[in-house]
Simulated scan of single mutants.
Amino acid sequence: MTQPDFGGNELPAVFPDWSPYQDLESAARAYLRDPDVALEALGGVLRGASVLGFTLERFVNEVNGVWQEVVVCDGSRLVLWHGEDVPPEEGPPGAMTSSLRVVPVSTVTEVGCRRRLTRTENGRIRVDSIDVYLLLTSLDESGSGEELPAGPRHDALRFGKTLDDGGAGQIARLEEFARLVASVVGRPVL
């Protein structure tokens, strides 16, 4: 099953699984469409810092084409890279944005993790999906709208995986990432 991108090329609708790869470079090369762009941007900030954990996301939608994200935790920072295709009316074929955000772990005030569990026919419990949020001290810049409550809201980083979108391996890796971030939140930085 494939889906065309803005350049007219066919992209697989189901991406390879990155969860077996323990190092960032191998996982990015297996999963992202543009791993060189992501790794160059991240490397410019990490500059040899130890990568304690990471999570990856990628999907294709009809409006913006391929959307990719990498989030790395080095113990004191979350380094987020985001790459997204530019819609045809906003740029030449194949154009994309590449952005980087660095969030000090000290600005994470809360880590939340919700797992949806189901019981299989043999009674075993299985994790079907996971939703993770990291609440930050910064304020959400999206403003207020009809669907949003009035007044300032804290910014949050949100991540999710399901059996259909990522599989059991990526669910486990996202939960591992959430636990890593939770373990360093509130600890003094050495």
Rank of each mutant, 00 (worst) to 15 (best):
38 A>V: 15
39 L>F: 05
39 L>H: 09
42 L>K: 10
42 L>F: 10
42 L>N: 13
44 G>V: 06
44 G>R: 14
46 L>H: 10
47 R>N: 15
48 G>A: 12
49 A>R: 15
52 L>V: 04
55 T>F: 09
55 T>E: 15
56 L>W: 09
61 N>K: 12
62 E>M: 13
64 N>L: 08
65 G>I: 14
66 V>T: 15
69 E>G: 10
71 V>D: 05
71 V>C: 09
72 V>M: 09
75 G>F: 10
75 G>K: 11
81 W>T: 02
83 G>N: 00
86 V>T: 15
86 V>H: 11
88 P>S: 13
91 G>D: 05
92 P>W: 03
92 P>G: 07
93 P>K: 08
94 G>D: 02
95 A>D: 01
100 L>T: 04
100 L>H: 00
101 R>I: 00
103 V>L: 03
106 S>F: 03
107 T>Y: 03
107 T>P: 04
108 V>S: 04
109 T>M: 06
110 E>S: 07
111 V>L: 13
112 G>D: 13
112 G>H: 14
115 R>C: 09
115 R>N: 13
115 R>A: 13
116 R>L: 09
119 R>H: 02
121 E>D: 14
123 G>V: 06
124 R>Y: 12
125 I>F: 14
125 I>L: 15
126 R>V: 07
129 S>E: 15
130 I>F: 08
130 I>M: 14
131 D>M: 05
132 V>G: 02
135 L>C: 01
137 T>I: 01
137 T>E: 15
139 L>N: 03
139 L>C: 01
144 S>C: 09
146 E>K: 06
152 P>I: 00
152 P>V: 00
155 D>I: 00
157 L>Y: 06
157 L>M: 11
160 G>C: 05
161 K>P: 07
169 G>W: 07
169 G>S: 08
171 I>F: 04
172 A>Q: 13
173 R>F: 06
175 E>F: 10
177 F>D: 14
179 R>H: 12
179 R>V: 07
179 R>C: 05
183 S>P: 08
184 V>M: 09
184 V>K: 05
